[in-house]
């Protein structure tokens, strides 16, 4: 079966994304209400993260049908999927270890690296995409999206930092920088994609 056929007959990326976020919400609700323990919660979260595989496949099939799929996009998506799964695994191990033992010194440094190394891999993946993408328009869009994400991180981080200094808001861990950057990048890509569709040939 070709990817085009799979894209037409398989479930859409929105279905898989919705299922993934609904699962995250359900697991969070079960944890908040103490219906499940920490270990069960992590196992369910890990299982839910596997939904990223069909989500990725559906996303690639969609991009193929809209003519946005380049070899660089395929490599980027595969690398990012592997890094995301590695992040989930590293994060789970790091949280579990931090809850079960007193961390300090070199041990804490090593355990902190578990979720961070996959994040480094994600950043490297983004850099490789910008290097490997031959389509200058797609490269331009990815650059603009990452710049928007960076702008969001700098603006939100600076504002929150001063609010925290003045005691208005609670402390937020610095690892939020990467998710905020990724959210900003996603917002910009969605916006530019919407603009593309609005200007597409009838």
């Amino acid at each position: 079966m070709t990817a085009e056929v799979a894209g037409r007959t398989g479930r859409s990326r929105w279905f898989w994304a919705g299922l993934m976020f609904a699962s995250f919400g359900a697991i969070a609700a079960l944890r908040i209400t103490d219906a499940i323990g920490k270990s069960t919660g992590f196992i369910l979260l890990a299982c839910t993260m596997l939904l990223i595989i069909p989500l990725t496949r559906a996303g690639l099939a969609h991009q193929r049908t809209t003519g946005r799929l380049s070899p660089a996009v395929v490599r980027y998506t595969r690398r990012f999927t592997v890094a995301s799964l590695g992040y989930m695994l590293g994060l789970g191990i790091a949280i579990t270890l931090s809850q079960r033992m007193e961390l300090s010194g070199a041990g804490a440094f090593a355990i902190a690296l578990l979720p961070v190394l996959p994040i480094f891999a994600m950043i490297w993946t983004m850099a490789r995409y910008l290097i490997e993408e031959d389509d200058e328009f797609l490269r331009h869009r990815a650059t603009m999206a990452s710049l928007f994400g960076l702008g969001l991180v700098l603006a939100a981080g600076s504002f929150w930092g001063f609010l925290e200094t003045f005691g208005v808001v609670p402390h937020i861990d610095a690892w939020w920088t990467f998710p905020v950057w990724a959210i900003g990048m996603g917002i910009a890509q969605c916006w530019m994609g919407w603009r593309d569709r609005a200007g597409a040939e009838s």
Binding site: R68, D134, F137, D196
Partner: peptide, 11 residues
């Protein structure tokens, strides 16, 4: 040898 989006954006 570019994406359809490129053509659309240029046009």
């Amino acid at each position: 040898e570019v994406s359809r989006q490129s053509v659309n954006a240029i046009e």
